[in-house]
Deep mutational scan, measured.
Amino acid sequence: MDVFMKGLSKAKEGVVAAAEKTKQGVAEAAGKTKEGVLYVGSKTKEGVVHGVATVAEKTKEQVTNVGGAVVTGVTAVAQKTVEGAGSIAAATGFVKKDQLGKNEEGAPQEGILEDMPVDPDNEAYEMPSEEGYQDYEPEA
């Protein structure tokens, strides 16, 4: 019985440690998101679009440190934060509304985080759909 109880105690310690790591990862992701939003706020009209992409990228980098179902929630929060940063930029006159959601080359930025393969159960990952990809044929 002692062996059984000791095993359960060790398992509990492992769960607590994993929860603490997840909590730490979420806190880091939130900190990076805040950094990115402050970065966007300090940019001029020309830099705002690039700044919004930076927020998304920093958040995406930190999301990889967070495991399990938390990833889905962090990704949703990050996307809403990026959308909010863009709205703030438009409201303050840093950028025109028609410039939001495009990178410096004018290509749409939507789907940055949505296409990231995420499995809350950590069982399997699927690649994003290939609808947006084109076949590449090298020139002879």
Rank of each mutant, 00 (worst) to 15 (best):
M1Y: 00
D2C: 04
D2L: 15
D2I: 02
V3M: 06
F4T: 00
M5L: 00
M5Y: 03
L8I: 04
L8F: 02
K10L: 14
A11Y: 13
A11D: 00
K12C: 13
E13M: 11
G14K: 09
G14Q: 15
G14F: 11
V15Y: 02
A17M: 14
A17F: 02
E20K: 03
E20V: 03
E20A: 13
T22Y: 05
T22M: 08
K23D: 00
K23E: 00
Q24V: 06
G25R: 12
V26S: 00
V26Q: 00
E28T: 07
E28N: 02
A29N: 01
A30N: 00
A30Y: 15
A30E: 00
A30Q: 01
A30R: 02
G31A: 11
K32C: 03
T33Q: 01
K34A: 10
K34E: 00
K34V: 15
G36W: 14
V37C: 08
L38I: 03
L38A: 04
L38Q: 07
Y39V: 05
Y39D: 01
K43L: 14
K45I: 14
K45E: 00
K45L: 14
E46F: 08
G47M: 08
V48M: 14
V48N: 00
V49F: 14
V49S: 10
V49A: 12
H50T: 13
G51V: 13
G51R: 08
G51T: 11
G51S: 03
V52I: 08
V52E: 00
T54A: 11
E57S: 04
K58F: 09
T59W: 14
T59F: 14
K60D: 00
K60I: 12
Q62P: 02
Q62S: 09
Q62W: 06
T64W: 07
T64G: 08
N65H: 05
N65P: 02
V66F: 11
A69P: 03
V70H: 01
V70Q: 01
T72E: 15
T72A: 12
V74Y: 07
A76F: 15
V77E: 02
V77W: 15
T81P: 02
V82D: 02
V82E: 02
V82R: 04
E83P: 05
E83M: 10
G84K: 11
S87H: 13
A89Y: 11
A89F: 11
A90G: 01
A90D: 06
T92H: 03
G93L: 07
G93Q: 04
F94Y: 12
K96A: 12
K96T: 13
K97I: 12
K97T: 07
D98E: 11
G101H: 10
K102W: 14
N103Q: 09
N103Y: 08
E104Y: 12
E104P: 09
E104R: 15
A107G: 10
A107E: 05
A107I: 03
A107R: 09
P108D: 10
P108H: 08
Q109P: 09
Q109S: 12
Q109F: 10
Q109V: 12
E110D: 10
L113W: 10
E114D: 15
D115Q: 08
D115M: 08
M116E: 13
P117N: 09
P117H: 05
P117E: 02
P117W: 10
V118S: 10
V118L: 08
P120G: 10
P120L: 09
D121L: 08
D121H: 11
D121E: 11
N122Q: 08
N122K: 11
Y125D: 11
E126P: 10
E126A: 15
M127L: 09
M127K: 10
P128K: 05
P128C: 05
S129Q: 07
E130W: 10
E130L: 07
E131S: 13
E131H: 09
G132K: 06
G132L: 11
Q134I: 11
Q134E: 05
Q134C: 09
D135A: 04
D135Y: 06
Y136F: 10
Y136N: 03
E137N: 04
E137H: 08
E137M: 05
E139W: 08
A140D: 13
A140M: 07
